[in-house]
Design a protein around this nucleic acid. Sequence first.
DNA 1: CGTAAGACTTGCCAGTAGGCTG
DNA 2: CAGCCTACTGGCAAGTCTTACG
Length: 553
Amino acid sequence: KYNGSKWRFLEHKGPVFAPAYEPLPEKVKFYYNGKPMKLSAPAEEVATFFAKMLDHEYTTKDIFRKNFYKDWRKEMTSEEKSIITDLKKCDFSEMNEYFKAQSEARKQMSKEEKQKIKEENERLLSEYGFCIMDNHRERIGNFRIEPPGLFRGRGDHPKMGMLKRRIRPEDVIINCSKDSKHPKPPPGTKWKEVRHDNKVTWLASWTENIQGSIKYIMLNPSSRIKGEKDWQKYETARRLKKCVDRIRTQYREDWKSKEMRIRQRAVALYFIDKLALRAGNEKEEGETADTVGCCSLRVEHIKLFPKMDEQEYVVEFDFLGKDSIRYYNKIPVEKRVFKNLQLFLENKQPEDDLFDRLNTSILNKHLQELMDGLTAKVFRTYNASITLQQQLKELTCCDDSIPAKLLSYNRANRAVAILCNHQRAPPKTFEKSMQNLQTKIDEKQNQLSAARKQLKAAKANHKASHDDKSKKAVEVKRKAVQRIEEQLMKLQMQATDREENKQIALGTSKLNYLDPRISVAWCKKWGVPIEKIYNKTQREKFAWAIDMAEKEF
DNA sequence: CGTAAGACTTGCCAGTAGGCTG
DNA sequence: CAGCCTACTGGCAAGTCTTACG
């Protein structure tokens, strides 16, 4: 790469701010202790955030309510503070109904009104949604600044319910090139800073008040700068492929090391490689939900079974990973790993670290020595991509129809998603949509038997008359049967696919782990149109791979 | 060194646009 | 042509890893 600079020229219009708060109409009242009470604008705004969430379960949770109440009080006038002393006595229901009515009204808007809003959005997008980076007009990923609201973390988050404050121009740092037309802050305001740092890719940033972390405005995945990075990531994974055998031999050797830290490192790496676990950085206690990855696993997260059913040396994993998604898996491991784990567990409490001599920085430093650019997450990318490739090879039958091939593709994708533990909550409408599909299949089946009957009749007719007309009729009917058979099969494939996908999310692996060149090559090889695999956005993101297109990869 | 800040990737999900169907 | 359904998109939280700092 050229001296670490990410661009030479960068020009943009700055971010779009959240719309200002619109006070509630007079008639919509907040009640305290049964009596109507007019709130000051700042207190009212925060109250509306809570009112909008009334239907959610988390507004009943203690931590959520406590955090909300604490932050809400900060927005109250001293008079309000003295009156409002108990959240339980607050009645937001009228506000809640008002917002429901509003969203109902939005749905009922006329076509013209909807059209107008759409046009306004398009205008905003064309004005603020693009930037110029090195001679290219590029799409910005997120050009809107996050609106204020109540923070809802995932899982059991200690900060749920806290007020996410409104971001003002004075909070925002702009990054652009010196010689560009600088974005103008809204009238009467100033940016926090305008800088010209071409060592980074972001266009604007601000500090968020919940975790104190920085949020960025960056480019869309279709941009050159993101695409190149993505390509680089897969190239690193390919380099790992070349030396993975050596690395595996090495860590197996390290299981026998005299040094505890090396054994721990080697066992952790084995898990990362075999199970595609995440690295597992340390987290600050009390700041986030209690989740772990490989290096931060605790004693309480694994159980050892010298014998389980037919298998020996089984390890049971049960922990919450990223986004508090549960990882549950029972796997047989090699004897040496098992013995090492027993050793690591000796004299420890459930809440102690399993790998007490290891953290991600030690592990990554070691990986860096094994291969340039190697880190823990490269294993996830590598194993995901190689699994896709193997599964595609195994599952694709050359004389399958396109729908059958697509089912194979999705199954290969699914194998990866399972490996990476990419789960989803079953869609709320899952049962119904499954039923709908079944109805369609039943209908199609009836159609098919009807068509078959007709074909039979046509054949009988032809046998009797032997004329050209009846022969044609047979052909027509035969075609019809064939067409319906195809349609039926397609529906059945869809049903199978959907059923198998109930709790599995394919999107994340498809977007972040699977080398798109594998998929593109597969499409080429089997004559499957690329649109069947990637939608428009995905094709834009993977344009670099689609352009390279070869039959083999 | 260890720790914090900074930059960038990965992750799930709710809301909605737009296609389909009765 | 409305209502329904689905696929997509955007939102933003939560990871990983690098860099800066004392």
